[in-house]
Structures are given as C-alpha cells and as structure tokens.
C-alpha cells in the first residue's frame, strides 16, 4: 500500500511537470475558456432578465457565473486517458508498460491525475480572472476553497476511473471513441456542467442522483457557491463510495483484458 502511494505520487508529479511543457496548449485552452465564459454570461444575463428574477435555482447571476467557472475548469481539464489506453493497446506499447512493476491502470490513473491537476489549476486561475472582470468578486466562505480542492481531487479520481473503464474496452473494441463520446456527453449534461442540477425537472434529478455524473462536476461546483459542511461530508462520502465501486469494476475488466491478451495475442 505504502509502495503504491509512493508510486502514484511519483508518476503524478512527473506527469504534472511534463504537462507544463505544453504551454501553448495550456494557453489556447484557457483562451477558449475565457470565450466560453463570456458567452455563458450573455446567455444567463438574458435568462435572468427574461425571468425577471434575481435568483434562479437558488443562484444569483454572480453565483451562476462562478458555478460555471468551476464546472468549465473541471470539464476542460480532462486528460486523454481513454484515448491513451486505446493507443497503447492498438500500437502494442502496452507490452512495454506491462514490464514495469506498477499496475497498468494505476500508472494510467496516476499520470492522468498529475496532468489534470495542472490543467485544472491553469483553467481555474484564468476562469476566475475572467469571471472577476465580468461579474465581480465572489464572496465565498473561507472553507470553500478547501472543500473545492478535496471534492475536485476525488472527482478527478472518479472521472479517471470512468475513463479507465472506457479505455480498457479497447481490448475488445479496438476503438473506444464512440463509448468515450457517450460518456463525456453524459457527464457534461447529467453532471451539471451547462445547467446546475437545481434546474433539472424533479423526475430527472431524482434519477441522476443515483448516477456518478453529478459527483464529477456539479458536486464540487455546488459546494464552492454553497459551502456547507454537511453537504461536503455527503459529497465526499458518495464520491468515495463510487470510487470503491468503479475500482472494483476496473479490477474486473482489467483481469478480463489480461486474459484476452493471452487468448488473442498482444
């Protein structure tokens, strides 16, 4: 266990450092984020004006924009984890990775985490600067950044496991881009990236809460604008539960995948 944690930390650190080499990509992504936030501002300004209401779904326009800043920063930080597994399987690079004394899924997950933390911090810093200029500061509680950090970290682990599950299907499908498209769109829509879950119809809300998607995006962003220790504990509990569940699924699929290499060749 101690060894695995040391390995996770080492891989994540190197992946984070390696990601800083892509400064051009980081810059273009943050520019895109600024444009998106500006469009969101205009859309929500119109919505608030039309509804003649200062609060929609429990959020003021200022809160709504800060909520969207967090959701966009999370969503746009997603690394190419599933595609990387796809490539490893198709190109045969997997055989090289299997010769290292670290579990392949653990290596992929750690690398994705390191990469994603750098991307998230860059996105959030840019997003916060843009949103500050557009709607002014957000008076969050002192605990909000800590809650956000913990919830975001768990969300990244959870999402990483989701991407791993998709990526591991490459052992059967060769190309998992279709599955990935479905997964990312579901996490975008059902995760509350575009519209907070508070605005979902009741029937959808009660259904979606049983899925892991809200805990990837909506959960951390909601906590940031509505900091509450009880909700924080609930979110962390649910994220941990889903992490354990998806870990078991990854373990199962990875076991089958290794059997498949043996039966059909690498």
């Amino acid at each position: 266990m101690k060894n695995s944690i040391r390995q996770i930390w080492a891989v994540a650190r190197v992946a984070a450092r390696s990601n800083l080499a892509y400064l051009g990509e980081v810059a273009s992504r943050t520019f895109f984020l600024a444009v998106i936030l500006f469009i969101f501002l205009k859309l929500w300004q119109a919505t608030y004006r039309e509804s003649a209401s200062a609060v929609i779904g429990g959020l003021s326009l200022n809160q709504m924009l800060w909520y969207l800043t967090v959701t966009e920063a999370i969503y746009m930080s997603a690394p190419r984890l599933a595609q990387q597994i796809d490539e490893d399987v198709r190109s045969g690079a997997l055989a090289v990775r299997l010769l290292k004394p670290i579990s392949y899924p653990l290596y992929c997950l750690s690398s994705a985490l390191g990469e994603r933390i750098v991307r998230f911090l860059a996105n959030f810093a840019t997003g916060a600067a843009v949103t500050f200029c557009l709607v002014g500061p957000f008076n969050c509680s002192p605990a909000a950044p800590i809650m956000l950090l913990v919830a975001v970290l768990l969300a990244f682990v959870l999402d990483g496991l989701g991407h791993l599950i998709i990526g591991l299907w490459a052992f059967w499908l060769e190309d998992t881009s279709g599955l990935l498209l479905i997964y990312t769109r579901l996490s975008m829509i059902l995760g509350g990236m575009l519209i907070p879950m508070e605005l979902f119809p009741d029937w959808l809300k009660s259904f979606v809460f049983f899925l892991p998607f809200p805990y990837l995006v909506w959960g951390p962003a909601h906590l940031f604008v509505h900091s509450d220790w009880l909700q924080f504990a609930q979110l962390v509990g649910l994220q941990s539960l889903y992490i354990l569940l998806l870990l078991a699924v990854v373990n199962l699929i990875y076991g089958w995948a290794l059997e498949r290499i043996s039966a059909h060749g690498g």
Partner: peptide
C-alpha cells in the same frame, strides 16, 4: 525519468 523509475522500482 530516471528519478521516476527509481520510485517505481523502489
């Protein structure tokens, strides 16, 4: 990469 391999191999 050497530093990382050292950690991976313990």
């Amino acid at each position: 990469s050497f530093d990382l391999l050292a950690e991976i191999y313990g």
